[in-house]
Simulated assay, not measured.
Amino acid sequence: MTSDPETPFQIIGEPRPARWLVTCDHATNRVPGWVAGGSLGIAAADMGRHIAYDVGAAGLTRALAEQLDAPAILSDFSRLVIDPNRGEDDPTLVMKLYDGTIIPANRHVTAADIAQRLGRLYRPYHDAYARLAARRPDTVICAVHSFTPQLKGRPPRPWQVGILYSHRDERLALPLIAALADQGLCVGDNEPYAGHLEGDAIDRHALAPGRPNVLIEVRNDLIATPAAQADWAARLAPVLGRVLADSGL
């Protein structure tokens, strides 16, 4: 595993041989000390919510990568600092308001601030991601995310897991939805939100170069503990293996 305070990502199991590359764009709520003194100005409780990172996704990523015998890359900065799952020109790249919470450190963010975050966090993460994805010609990307059971003022979300995808590549997503539903799970088909934004991580590293891909969202109350993360990894890995094998890709 590679990680240090100045490296905006962690790489786990780089020598592992599987075709899969498991990714976690929103792995942590860490705010580097050079960003607003290490605090975005919101309460600790908010920094522990889905607005700052994908709760439980990092542990699920590590466990799933181990099950698949695959490498993994995880971001090591909060999505509220800069969101690596957005294009550089996306207006939500640096959020000022998220699920009812104002982000004080971002309210008056400047172009120079954003350029610094791009140069020190966002681009190094994507450079490492691209390098890992290119380690073999038949890489398959599995992006791991989590979602909150309920947004403020909105109805509860019923799905246990969501599979997100672009209409440009449904080759693994659609059979994966069917396979998980066959297990009795409540599966979201491009729910709880649509699965593709221009310039997002899958667009950049999978769709543009033509790599097979899936994006898995697990409801975060279901992966709140290491044991639950391990259970979900053990459930997902064999299904992913079967779906890939059956696809002939």
Rank of each mutant, 00 (worst) to 15 (best):
144 V>M: 15
128 A>W: 05
88 E>C: 00
185 L>K: 06
165 Y>P: 06
180 L>N: 01
168 R>S: 13
123 R>I: 01
45 A>Y: 06
121 L>R: 02
240 L>Q: 11
170 E>S: 11
129 Y>F: 15
50 H>C: 01
134 A>Y: 03
95 M>N: 08
212 P>V: 03
198 E>A: 13
3 S>N: 12
56 G>N: 07
15 P>M: 01
163 I>L: 10
143 A>R: 11
241 G>Q: 14
117 R>E: 04
173 A>W: 01
177 I>F: 09
7 T>W: 08
155 P>H: 03
130 A>E: 14
15 P>L: 08
106 N>M: 07
170 E>F: 09
240 L>T: 06
48 G>N: 15
76 D>N: 12
244 L>A: 04
180 L>Y: 01
228 A>D: 13
55 V>M: 05
127 D>T: 13
200 D>E: 04
90 D>N: 15
224 A>M: 08
163 I>N: 03
77 F>E: 09
12 I>V: 15
226 P>V: 01
49 R>T: 15
19 R>E: 12
12 I>M: 08
69 D>G: 13
60 L>A: 06
93 L>E: 11
227 A>Q: 14
178 A>L: 12
231 D>S: 13
44 A>P: 10
96 K>T: 15
15 P>C: 04
83 D>E: 15
233 A>Q: 04
156 P>W: 07
50 H>P: 02
90 D>C: 10
100 G>H: 11
160 Q>H: 08
172 L>E: 10
238 P>I: 00
180 L>R: 08
173 A>N: 06
